[in-house]
Amino acid sequence: MFDLLQNAFIASLFISVAVGVIGSYVVINRFNYLAASIAHGSYAGVGFAVYFGISILLGTTVFALLLALLLSFISFNNRSRSDTLIGVIWAVGMSIGIIFTDLTPGYNADLMSYLFGNILMVPKSDLIFMAVVDLIILISGVVFYNHILAISYDIDFAKLRGIRVGFLYTYFLILIALTVVMSVRSIGLILVIALFTIPPYISEKFTKDFKAMMFLSGVLAFVFCIAGLYISYSYDISATPAIILTASVFFFLSLFKRR
């Protein structure tokens, strides 16, 4: 039991670092819909992985990365007009995932465990993957901080300064994909989006500096995970919904604070 809790604790920490940074960029750029499309669409990767008997993490990583590339190609020039296509990709990905798990002989598919995860069952190999993704995100976050922030504020001005807007857009969607994938077995593909958006949304209201916003988002995500874990343990309920509901309570409370 202690081992499980320890892994859950470490996973929470790693996930919080990633969603604190990436989630903040998602929120200020209003990428929620894109991120959700990557997350849901990646379920196709789960389906393929169980059908062909390869590692789930590998299957979802490949699919999530392909989706990130596809979506960046589709949506870079006109995000609002590509909404429909983004929604269709989301649905197609999920459907493929479900059909392939259905087709897998003798696999009484535990759909729920990938859609909603189980943070108490995170294997060690996932923790290593998470640590690597965190490292990539932190380094990218520092190196491209000023460029991504300039793009987020005023993309036209960023272009005029010669910033590689297209490259950074794609790169950024790839980081979203990696963050989604690293959470597949702990938080799950669907609810991770809530963890992407709720902490930054709250933090944005309390900070006037973007670094502070990312830091506070990470701290909040961690607090929500630990509180959720505690509730889940005490009442013997699933961890992910407990975490997300905890976050939601704070989200609703934050609505009372004006900007």
Binding site: I28, V143, F144, Y145, N146, H147, L149, A150, S152, Y153, D154, F157, A158, R161, G162, I163, R164, E204, T207, K208, D209, F210, A212, M213, R259
Partner: peptide, 21 residues
């Protein structure tokens, strides 16, 4: 809504392709 100070915005004028910091 972006948490960005006046100084952050003015500094954006100094960015270019190769200037990261």
């Amino acid at each position: 809504d972006l948490p960005l100070t006046v100084m952050d915005v003015a500094l954006q004028g100094r960015l270019n392709k190769n200037k990261l910091f």
